[in-house]
Amino acid sequence: MNWLPVLLLYVAVWLAIFVQTQFPALTEWLGLAPSLVPALIVHAALTHSSWVTFGLAVFAGLGLDSLSPMKLGIHYLPLLALGLAIQARQHLILRDQTYARIFLGLAAGTFVPLATLLLLTVTDRPVLSGWSTGWQLVFSGLFNAMACPVCFRIFDWLERVLGDPRPVESSFRPDRQIKRGRN
């Protein structure tokens, strides 16, 4: 296994978390900091092993928790639940179809903040939630629905460029050739 695409996925998550802390004007305008992390977890769950998904969810969850006043472990659980749920149904998901990617991005982008909010309300300190929370969930879902196919395209391209070359399957089989002429 070539670890370079996996490493780049970790770097993408690292940068995505950092970007969430920047651009205050954009955050104010939108009402929330757009997060790419759910889309990246979807990609990891459908492309890499469960170990990579597990590690990525832990890294992303702890990264988000460390830069916010959140209790450690709050973000990790929804991200990992998302990754493992997708991985468990990996064989049923049409990974290469754009509509499947859009739907997965939409579901992931809505599920992660909603599950985080639910976890926060039962385990952690009070949060600022109200009518604007609905908009935040909708926007997060739509943003990840748009971002998910782009993430797949970029990382699939990186996988092709940096990953191990796939064995070329040929339709030629010597044992199935019709032998002409007299023996």
Binding site: Q20, T21, Q22, L64, L67, S68, P69, M70, Q136
Partner: peptide, 14 residues
């Protein structure tokens, strides 16, 4: 100020 809270559940800056 070097950043703000990455989530939208609190009002916080770094």
């Amino acid at each position: 100020v070097i950043g703000r809270e990455p989530t939208t559940w609190w009002r916080s800056v770094l």
